[in-house]
Design a protein around this nucleic acid. Sequence first.
DNA 1: TGTACATCAGTGAACGCGCGTTCACTGATGTAC
DNA 2: TGTACATCAGTGAACGCGCGTTCACTGATGTAC
Lengths: 234, 234
Amino acid sequence: MNDGAPRTVRDRVRAELTNEIKAIARRQLAQEGASALSLRAVARELGMVSSAVYRYFPSRDDLLTALIIDAYEAVAIAAEQAEQSASRAGVAARWLAIARAIRLWAVAHPHEYALIYGSPVPGYRAPVDTVPASARVSFVFLRLLADGVASGEIEVGEPMPIPRAIHADFTALRDQSAVEVSDQILARGFMVWTELFGMISFELFGHLHNVIHDYDTFFEAQMRRAGRFLATGT
Amino acid sequence: MNDGAPRTVRDRVRAELTNEIKAIARRQLAQEGASALSLRAVARELGMVSSAVYRYFPSRDDLLTALIIDAYEAVAIAAEQAEQSASRAGVAARWLAIARAIRLWAVAHPHEYALIYGSPVPGYRAPVDTVPASARVSFVFLRLLADGVASGEIEVGEPMPIPRAIHADFTALRDQSAVEVSDQILARGFMVWTELFGMISFELFGHLHNVIHDYDTFFEAQMRRAGRFLATGT
DNA sequence: TGTACATCAGTGAACGCGCGTTCACTGATGTAC
DNA sequence: TGTACATCAGTGAACGCGCGTTCACTGATGTAC
């Protein structure tokens, strides 16, 4: 149906309107948050009658799902582009580039960040469609880990014991991502990755308010430290 | 007015009803999330007419504020109790006790956790009243840092450069908390603290779904590793 | 190229719902003397 | 201890609002021959 380029005028108009609906919805999201997102408000701003939106999205939740997928893809693309721009640099620099790119996207789109990394929207259950989109950004990081190990920039050091249950999960992750990285480095990677999103969430959700004032500098300093930990385990 | 014990029957009934309202609201929060919390639904479950609730909370937002403060205090109390039970143990064990207690509280009260550490509730602006409550839990951690440095269990190691702007914020934090800990250890502490909440948020908000299966074990392993980093910087 | 029919986009009205908040009221509880 | 008045809790009706979703409809666009 919608594979390839749109053939007819109708198809093209439809694709444009679909995007316009999403753009308006994103804007309203940015003003009021996810649970205040309403089809009627979108229709109003579009200059259409509310029932017309149903020609494009069968329900409010489907619109929300589309926004969620778009948001996941936007972070992923931001990370991928940063990674590519820095691809000739070392692992530490690439890590910083990725971390900065993700944070900058989040700061520029706080409600979209909240939509995907904040509390789940009440009454909404994410369908499976969102899974591949959500995984995409972490693959950027996993590839960085693999590169770092291959180049020797990530020092493996003395192995630490990993619980059996976690080893199984890590093995599954290696299979899915086709990235061969040892348990120990995956565990280290998880710490740094968690740190990154914890940091952004703290900043955006107000937990550093009146504690830290220069968010940019603080983020930069902590991420540099995290990068060192990633590379050397210290 | 309400200083000390309630004097009259009316006062006692009022205090009980206020608590009951909060309890019902908390339960509804747990079922539907914060933005679905409604005074009318609470009144319905109370068996009262909706306007009666206004005798207890002047608006929906005030009820929400009360829940937020209660939630902050509940995590703080959980952390404090864990800390006290482990107060004779070493810093590593105390850190683990605190981390576990906070996570267990979060897992037991996911919507209350989301209320305070997830995305802000749309259309709601937290009043200043919530600030002291929100800070309480981190003071537990700051005191642990100070104890660890005093006892030598936290190794200071070679100092690392801290940006001037961050040094100023850290100084203010030392003043507010009356905890004397060096910039370097504060920075390290921030990393570990961020890691803890990042981890809990990842788990509760579904970002480890189908990746990690044994959350308990994973959390335990990562927090042990974080504890080592806290103590030794490695 | 032209016509006949099928598909689709957008309209407008309607259904049923729940929400926050206000207000004048009744009856019970508390207080001052 | 008893009475008169003030305070307070809860009622019931109402205001005005916005929401998601359905449905029969009109008119425009696309397709097959």
